[in-house]
Every structure is written in structure tokens, then in C-alpha cells.
Design a protein around this nucleic acid. Structure first.
Length: 583
DNA sequence: TTAGGGTTAG
């Protein structure tokens, strides 16, 4: 008996030594069969788990089938492994097999299966698993419930996520984190921040995972005061600045307008990976510092940094597109396909079309799309949207109208395409067509999004919308804005009115423009602060007139004005913008 | 053996 146990443990050790490597595992398996241990349940379970970790799913299943009457431990092992390895369909398949084999699931089973349903965003299947967990008596298990919060969040159902969370008899830091992350991932940054405060009030101590989500939420809304508080807290508590936390901080500072600070964090990180480098490259790119973005990318290659992935290439190509670095962009695209053997996706194609288009090479952009046509990849609306942007920018109205009509045929529900067509008609002076499009939009209930701008002053957040009069100091803000605008006019500012509101009178037009939300926020910021840079976050893209006005305002107020729009940053200083009017 | 995290175009 003693020798059997010894031999068994030697076999176990041999399996562990083989590790998640198929060839080695197969050798050990052969040895097990020869020595008579090929039917040992515990050894096979370990072997199966490792085969699964090696992602050898066919081999895993073959081994699994060799076990007569699999028990709950074996089922849980494969369910957990497939879930962890992001093989969610296999995970759900093993779960179903477990049920049909009449083997009882446990809380271990449910947490893994629910996680896989979350990966699949399979709301219907996951709800079924949720019900099964409840009737099996695991509905109140802490682990199962935390997994459910994540599951509903990933399916976009925050109401259900909140409900599961609220009904938890005992909450955990992980469950709180799931909820914070859920709101943040669904674009509900304010709710994420609110939950974070509730978490602290309930006496839970946030950890680095909480802060990663919280920092992302701060980056989303531009809440720099809370964001930098978190940074200080991390430092003062001596929390380890791991890669994810560092990356979240880079993203925070970048999206709150401070690229220098983002770079400081990047330089201080002990460990970096492809996401951290990509975040930093993207920071340079969105702020219009194309050269720095390309330099950092080159450094990544030269200094044996992490291997760039397709996300990195989107960041670099987009940086080139926005800085007019056509030759650099071409070279990067070539390296991506030839040196790294990455297959470009629609997002990379869009960057290329955008890059050629912005630089005025409309023919080349068009040719690029047609080359894709041959491979059947030219149908993506995003490609034509980029091409359309170029037509508008370079005043090629005929081609613009043709493309806009094509886009409307492809996506009639997208108000953006109608607005674009209307703007092109407006720019080419076809006012009848403008009214026609606008009427059509009204009839079909297609509305433009409501724009708003946010500014933080002394740790408080103020929100402005167009023509806003809700603010306590409305009168003062408007009067100050009037003064600013008239001083701007004295040095050459002429309101741009061609794009907007062609049906109204000239004066009204100018009046409406002057009170765009970003103008109100900027005026408020200048009024309330002295000598510092002000940062405004807008939910839509900045309009041409505000862009022009802020250049002049940066002169008359002698201030650095930073505006983050839906996609990019604009640093206005001494009469010019960092985007070089190239956005 | 169990649950939670960072990077991407327009």
C-alpha cells in the first residue's frame, strides 16, 4: 500500500512538472497508462485541468470522456478552468453536461458559469443560471452574488446589477468594486463616483481595484480634483503602483488635460506593458502631439519594450492622422502588416482614410477605400464617414453629398449623417436643401444630441448647456462673455455662422453661437480664477466658431484654455490651438 | 478550486 501511494504521488508530481504543456502532458498520460494509473480519478482531474490551461480544448475533452461517471470535483475543475481561460462557450457546455449528468452544482460552479455568461454578454442564459443558483440554495452566496453583479453590469443592465447588490446580506469589497466598475464601464461615471462615496460611508476600505475603476470614472467626467486626491491617497497609503493602476493614472491625467503629468507617472512606473505604453502614446495623440507619439512608439521598438498590439497601432496611426504625419503613418502601417504580421481591422483602415483625407489627399483616401473594396472590406460605414469628413474639410461638396446620401441609405437612423449632409448643403449655399433635411429629421424624430460643458472650479463641478440661464451668476457670466467677445472682435474675431442655423437672421445666429455651452463654461472659468489654465470638458465636438473664439479669448485674457471635446484636446494659447486647426 | 481592474477611430 505504501509503495502504491508513493508511486501515485510520484505520478502526481510528474503531472505538475509537465505543467500546462500538451506534449509533456501526453507523455505523462502515456506513462500513467503503462504503469496502471491511467484510471486514477484524482490524477486524471489534475491532468485535465492542466490540459485545459494549455488551451488544448480537444485534448481536454478527450481526457474528460475517458473518466467514467465524472464527479462534482472534476466538473468544477473544467468549468473553472474554461471560465478562467475565457472559453465561455465550453464552460457553459460543461455546466449543461453537469446538469444532465445529475451531478450537483455548488457555489464554485455558479461563480464560474456566471462569469462566462458575463464574458458572452448572454443575458438570457445568465438569467437561467441565476434562477438555477437560487433554487439550488446558492442565491445568497457572497461569491455568486458578486459574480452576478458583474454579469448584469456586463450585459448593460445596471438596474438588475444594483438590485442584486442591494439584496446582498453581506457585502464585500469585491462586490462594491464590481458595482463601481459596472457603472464606469457603462459610461455612468457619476454613478460610479457616487457608489464609491457610499462604499466609504459604509466603512469599506477601497483597494487598488476600486481605484482603477474610480480613476477611469474621473477620466470620463474630467473630475481632476477627485482623481488627484486618489493619486495622493495611493502615495500616502503606500499602495503599490502596479501596471493597471499606473495606466489608469496616465489615462486620468491625459484625459483631464495634463499630458506632462501623465508622462511623469509613466516614467515612474516600475513595470510597464503594452497597455501602459499605448495609453501614453494615445495621450500624446489626442493632444495633437503627433511627433511625440511617433517618437515614443519608436522608442518602444528600439528599447525592447513590449510588443505593440493592434490597439497600439490605432493610437499611433490616429496620432499621425491628426498631426498631418502622412509619411510616418504610411511607414507605421507597413510595419504593422509586414514586421508584426497584424491584420489591419476597420479601425486601422479608418485611421488611414482619415490621415489621407485630413492632409487633403482625397484621391488617395478614395483609392485606399477602393483597394479594400476588392477584398470586400469597404462596406464599413466608418470608412465613408471618415471620407465624408475629409470632403467637408476640403470643401469637395459634390463628392460629400454623394457619400452622405450613401451613408444615409446604409444607416438611416443615424442623425450624424443627416446633420453632415445638411452642413455640406449649408456650406455650399443650398439653403433649400438644408431646410429639407432638417424637416425630414424632425418628421422622423431624429434629434441632434444635447451639448453640455463641464468645468471644475475649486473642487466643485459646474455644468453648462447652450443658452443656459440656470446658474446663480448668469447675469455676470453673460456680461463678462459680452465684454470678452467685443474685445476679441476688436482684434479680428469674426463669428463663424455659415454652418449653423441657416434659417434664422444673422444677429440671432450670432447670439445663439455666442452662448454655446463651452463659451459659457470658459467665461465662467476665467471669471472665477486668476492666472491659471482652465480646463473645460464638452460631451460633443467643439464647433468651428467656439474654436475660433477661444483662440482670441486666449489672447485677450492671457490664459491657457484647454478644451476636451468628444474626441480630442485643444490647448488654446497666445491665439493659436495645439490642433493647428486640424481636428 | 470560487467574485472585482488599465490601452483603441469617428
Amino acid at each position: 500500500m505504501t509503495t502504491k501511494v508513493a508511486a501515485n504521488s510520484a505520478a502526481y508530481e510528474a503531472i505538475v512538472r509537465a505543467g500546462p504543456r500538451v506534449k509533456q502532458l501526453q507523455q505523462v498520460h502515456a506513462h500513467l497508462i503503462v504503469t496502471g494509473y491511467g484510471r486514477s480519478r484524482s490524477l486524471l482531474t489534475k491532468l485535465i485541468t492542466l490540459a485545459c490551461s494549455a488551451r488544448a480544448i480537444a485534448y481536454t475533452h478527450l481526457l474528460f470522456l475517458s473518466v467514467p461517471l465524472p464527479d462534482d470535483f472534476l466538473f468544477n475543475s473544467v468549468i473553472k478552468s474554461t471560465s478562467k481561460l475565457r472559453l465561455p462557450l465550453h464552460c457553459v457546455a460543461y455546466y449543461r453536461r453537469m446538469i444532465s449528468s445529475n451531478v450537483s452544482p455548488s457555489n464554485y460552479t455558479f461563480t464560474s458559469v456566471i462569469k462566462s455568461c458575463a464574458d458572452l454578454s448572454a443575458l438570457r442564459i445568465g438569467k437561467g443560471v441565476h434562477c438555477h443558483a437560487v433554487v439550488s440554495g446558492f442565491g445568497l452566496d457572497t461569491y455568486v452574488q458578486a459574480a452576478l453583479v458583474t454579469f448584469y453590469s456586463k450585459c448593460g443592465d445596471m438596474e438588475a446589477a444594483r438590485q442584486v447588490f442591494d439584496r446582498m446580506p453581506e457585502k464585500s469589497v469585491v462586490a462594491w468594486n464590481s458595482l463601481v466598475s459596472g457603472f464606469e464601464q457603462n459610461g455612468l461615471a457619476e454613478d460610479a463616483i457616487r457608489v464609491f462615496y457610499q462604499m466609504r460611508e459604509s466603512g469599506f476600505k477601497p483597494d487598488s481595484v476600486t481605484f482603477v475603476s474610480l480613476l477611469s470614472a474621473c477620466a470620463q467626467t474630467g473630475a481632476i480634483s477627485l482623481g488627484s486626491w486618489v493619486h495622493q491617497y495611493i502615495v500616502s497609503e503606500g499602495l503599490d503602483l502596479n501596471v493597471k493602476l499606473g495606466t489608469a493614472l496616465i489615462n486620468l491625467y491625459s484625459r483631464c488635460g495634463d499630458v506632462g503629468k501623465a508622462r511623469e507617472v509613466f516614467d515612474k512606473m516600475k513595470e510597464t506593458n503594452v497597455a501602459a505604453w499605448t495609453a501614453m502614446i494615445s495621450a500624446y495623440g489626442t493632444h495633437g502631439y503627433g511627433k511625440q507619439a511617433v517618437d515614443l512608439f519608436n522608442k518602444m521598438e528600439d528599447d525592447c519594450g513590449p510588443i505593440p498590439n493592434s490597439v497600439t497601432f490605432v493610437a499611433v496611426l490616429s496620432a499621425c492622422a491628426h498631426a498631418g504625419l502622412v509619411e510616418e503613418g504610411r511607414s507605421v502601417y507597413k510595419r504593422m502588416t509586414e514586421s508584426y504580421r497584424l491584420i489591419p481591422g476597420v479601425e486601422h483602415h479608418v485611421c488611414m482614410v482619415d490621415m489621407f483625407g485630413r492632409a487633403g489627399f482625397l484621391d488617395e483616401a478614395y483609392r485606399f477605400i477602393h483597394q479594400l473594396d476588392a477584398t470586400g472590406k469597404a462596406t464599413a460605414p466608418a470608412l465613408w464617414t471618415a471620407m465624408l469628413g475629409a470632403c467637408k474639410m476640403h470643401r469637395n461638396y459634390d463628392l460629400g453629398v454623394e457619400i452622405a446620401k450613401r451613408l444615409i441609405a446604409l444607416e438611416p437612423e443615424n442623425p450624424g449623417h443627416h446633420v453632415m449632409l445638411s452642413n455640406i448643403y449649408a456650406l455650399s449655399g443650398k439653403t433649400d436643401e438644408v431646410s429639407h433635411i432638417r424637416d425630414g429629421m424632425m418628421r422622423n424624430n431624429l434629434r441632434k444630441q444635447v451639448g453640455y460643458s463641464i468645468i471644475e472650479v475649486e473642487n466643485k463641478t459646474y455644468l453648462f448647456s447652450m443658452g443656459d440661464e440656470s446658474h446663480q451668476e448668469t447675469g455676470e457670466i453673460y456680461r463678462y462673455l459680452e465684454t470678452l467677445i467685443s474685445r476679441c472682435k476688436e482684434i479680428g474675431y469674426a463669428p463663424v455662422s455659415e454652418e449653423v442655423m441657416h434659417q434664422v437672421e444673422e444677429e440671432e445666429k450670432e447670439f445663439a453661437l455666442r452662448y454655446h455651452s463651452e463659451k459659457l463654461a470658459v467665461a465662467f472659468g476665467l471669471l472665477k480664477t486668476v492666472d491659471v489654465a482652465i480646463t473645460v470638458v464638452k460631451n460633443l465636438r467643439i464647433c468651428e466658431d467656439c474654436h475660433s473664439a477661444f483662440k482670441y479669448i486666449s489672447i485677450v485674457s492671457n490664459r491657457h484654455i484647454i478644451v476636451r471635446d468628444k474626441l480630442r484636446f485643444h490647448h488654446f494659447q497666445n491665439g493659436s490651438c495645439s490642433c493647428l486647426d486640424y481636428w
